[in-house]
């Protein structure tokens, strides 16, 4: 399985209450009872993920349809950092990757 890309899946939309609030977004996570205050691009990333399990590249493709992400290598590194933070917060699950 080495070399398999990990998959990421956001917690279900039912599990989060999302309230945009003038420049930032509040996310109430039902499972943990924690309120998160987040700014761009976190709400956009979660919206793009929907409830699908995606690799970073698949997520990048989705985001690039709506946003100008500039340099692809740099964009992937930034996205990876944000996704890791979301995994730490419990809002996104990291799943075992599958070989294509």
């Amino acid at each position: 399985m080495s070399g398999a890309e990990p998959l990421y899946r956001a917690d279900t939309t039912d599990a989060m209450l999302v309230e945009p609030l003038d420049g930032l977004t509040l996310i109430y996570h039902r499972r943990s009872g924690v309120t998160h205050m987040v700014v761009e691009p976190v709400p956009q990333i979660l919206a793009a993920m929907g409830e699908d399990a995606l690799t970073l590249d698949q997520l990048l493709t989705r985001l690039s349809k709506d946003f100008d992400l500039g340099d692809a290598v740099e964009a992937k590194a930034v996205l990876a950092a944000r996704i890791d933070e979301l995994v730490d917060l419990g809002l996104v699950d990291k799943l075992d990757g599958q070989d294509a």
């Binding site: 609030l21 003038d22 420049g23 930032l24 509040l26 309120t35 205050m37």
Partner: peptide, 11 residues
């Protein structure tokens, strides 16, 4: 007072 600051203060 921006809504984000209000939220932090009120919580």
């Amino acid at each position: 007072v921006a809504p984000g600051e209000t939220f932090m203060r009120m919580t």
